[in-house]
Design a protein around this nucleic acid. Structure first.
Lengths: 164, 164
DNA sequence: ATAAAATTGTTGCACGCGCAACGAAATTCG
DNA sequence: CGAATTTCGTTGCGCGTGCAACAATTTTAT
């Protein structure tokens, strides 16, 4: 065994950022998030959590704060405050749940739904612009891989409450 | 043309979160980021920006704060403060650049490199655990697609400074 | 050469966010 | 049935972070 160099002391790159997936995922998510945030902040004065509440309620009609938090990996206090702000602005209404009086069902007001209907097409247009560099097949593959990874990542830390 | 229902008023889901890629990318990034953050916060008292500075310097040896910020889509003030903290802890050192005295070259101190060499294997182990649900081929495909998307996303908003 | 514009990094300020403690309600257990 | 535990949502606190203004320096334009 011809030893190459004995006791190399030179620093060595152990992690290559350009190949480190968690890093790259965060960079990509930041890029898309920032671009989207610009749209709904400038045009509708919405924060990211506020936007998420509105889109979730636009899709699900009635949901609790906890559902929204868990689904989007956000802290419950973040959602609580976002809902409070949206309620003050008259975009979201609370309906007490008779079956479980700890929780409140949330829904969009007509004004909230109007914003949703304005915002949703822009969000989809942004998504299309973003995905336009991928073929339809690539989009499907990416979609499946992202879902697979996300499911696995959730199983690695099930009891957590995350922050964006 | 037999019209279906005239003037449907029922609310309609325009955005399906489970199919909306920016949302899913953020969820996935949050999941991985939280799990990683737990490692280097608990064991080394590092914040996310602090960790990013250390890994970047671990790989590149000499970099300016601006480089790190742009590469990781983070705000320059975030990096500035992270570097200040790391310098106080004796993990990072500044070398003034004679060619351009506005900027400072950053490098890891021996203590900083020691943390890096402790942390890097754990980060890589986490990445392996995360990617273990994908085949080698799938990993390669995902990698390529993420890069392609990130390049495109950067080109959509080139003059921005992002936030994590 | 001189002035105007651009760039690097820092800092005061405000605010959003995570944490932990809390009240209220529901569930589990003895 | 009653006590202990769990869960949903809110809130005070501290802090990290984005924004904008700034000093220092370099680059560009006149």
């Amino acid at each position: 065994m011809q030893s190459s160099v004995a006791l190399r002391k030179q620093p060595e790159a152990l992690v290559i950022l350009e190949r480190f997936l968690p890093y790259r995922l965060n960079v990509l998510a930041s890029l898309t998030s920032n671009a989207l945030a610009q749209i709904y902040a400038e045009r509708f004065g919405l924060t990211i959590p506020g936007w998420r509440v509105i889109v979730t309620l636009g899709q699900y009609e009635f949901r609790t704060a906890r559902d929204i938090a868990a689904h989007g990996v956000m802290h419950k206090s973040t959602i609580s405050r976002a809902v409070a702000t949206l309620e003050e602005r008259g975009l979201v209404a609370r309906k007490p749940n008779a079956d479980d009086r700890r929780e409140e069902l949330l829904e969009l007001t007509p004004a909230g739904r109007a914003i949703y209907e304005d915002l949703a097409p822009e969000a989809l247009a942004f998504e299309r612009r973003l995905l336009s560099v991928l073929s339809g097949e690539e989009q499907g593959i990416l979609s499946a891989l992202v879902d697979k990874l996300a499911r696995h990542a959730r199983s690695l830390a099930p009891q957590e409450e995350g922050g964006s």
